[in-house]
């Protein structure tokens, strides 16, 4: 520091040379996404509440469905080694397992997609990034759900 005299109480020397002065003022710092009076208020009805409730309810159902699924597929009756075309064909002969798998497919996909939507809303800052990420997410979700449902409904055990 260049000044050697003791500064007056409460007035310390400013470190470094100021980059800005009266004629050349410092730029205003804008918060990345701040809430102002002009912030567009989105009115989506009760969608967010429905999504929140769906996460809780589907979560509870999925605990039963997924744990049951894992137990049957991986633990009981010799574990993974028994899984084959014949095993799947045998299970899907019963409407109970068709409904079980269909329910698990829809709930798990929607539950996961909604979770990812939340994460995108939280972390993607630019509107364009959000748009593309969500577009990708929704496309993948719809594709997987439709393909899975198609297979469950049109499964043919006699296929060659």
């Amino acid at each position: 520091m260049s000044t050697t005299e003791t500064p007056a109480a409460g007035v310390g020397p400013v470190e470094g040379a100021p980059l800005f002065d009266v004629d050349n003022p410092a730029p205003l710092i804008e918060a990345p996404r701040k809430r102002t009076k002009k912030t567009p208020r989105s009115t989506r009805g009760n969608f967010e509440m429905a999504a929140w409730l769906f996460m809780r309810l589907s979560g509870v159902v999925l605990v039963v469905l997924v744990l049951g699924h894992l137990l049957i597929q991986l633990v009981l009756d010799g574990g993974v080694s028994k899984i084959g075309f014949a095993f799947v064909a045998g299970r899907w002969a019963s409407p109970f397992w068709q409904v079980w798998d269909l329910l698990m497919l829809w709930l798990a996909m929607l539950h996961g997609a909604n979770g990812l939507r939340t994460i995108i809303n939280d972390y993607a800052e630019r509107a364009n990034t959000r748009l593309w990420l969500k577009g990708l997410l929704y496309t993948a979700t719809v594709f997987t759900i439709l393909l899975g449902s198609l297979v469950i409904f049109t499964f043919d055990p006699n296929i060659r």
Binding site: R35, R41, S42, T43, R44, N46, F47, E48, M49, A51, W52, T118, N121, D122
Partner: peptide
């Protein structure tokens, strides 16, 4: 508070 940026976040 039922808004997209409300309590559900």
């Amino acid at each position: 508070l039922n808004d997209r940026d409300g309590v559900w976040r």
